[in-house]
Amino acid sequence: MTVVQFLVEVTGTYVATLAFGILINIPRRALNVGGWIGVLGYLLYRFTVLGGGGYVVGNLLGAVAIGVASLQAAKFKKMPMILFNIPAIVPLVPGGQAYQMVKNFALGQNSTAFSYLLQVVMISGAIAFGFLLSELVNRVQQRVWRRHR
């Protein structure tokens, strides 16, 4: 992956996250932060995949990062957390695999379709589990904060 390609990917992720935020009518002052959280999650995913960690672990780490970063942003901006994490997971959605699954089912190639179905399920599960883990981090952090004040 060249540097130019990398920059194109980061810009694309940022723009797409921001634009998805506009489609679901996120308040203007939350848009920018949401975009950067999307980039953060995607970068973690991308580097894990490049480092040989595999799609599932990459999505898991990306989702954890998004969940933790969203809570920090929510605290900082005093806004609900879902304003930040909903647009941010969009770049992680397994769109390509889901499309290949539908296409192969439609064309009658069931065994290929099933392998893509398995990927979609694994990736969605990884994202959901990532959110669970981030919730764990957030709750622990809240506990520690409360004790130290």
């Binding site: 990917e9 694309g12 797409a16 921001l18 634009a19 506009i22």
Partner: peptide, 23 residues
């Protein structure tokens, strides 16, 4: 809501960049 033209632009800007990022 955001103005209609901005929503249209946003839909375009979700599609194009993500196509490049994914594919």
């Amino acid at each position: 809501y955001f103005p209609f033209w901005l929503q249209l632009l946003a839909a375009a800007l979700v599609s194009g960049p993500l196509e490049v990022v994914f594919r």
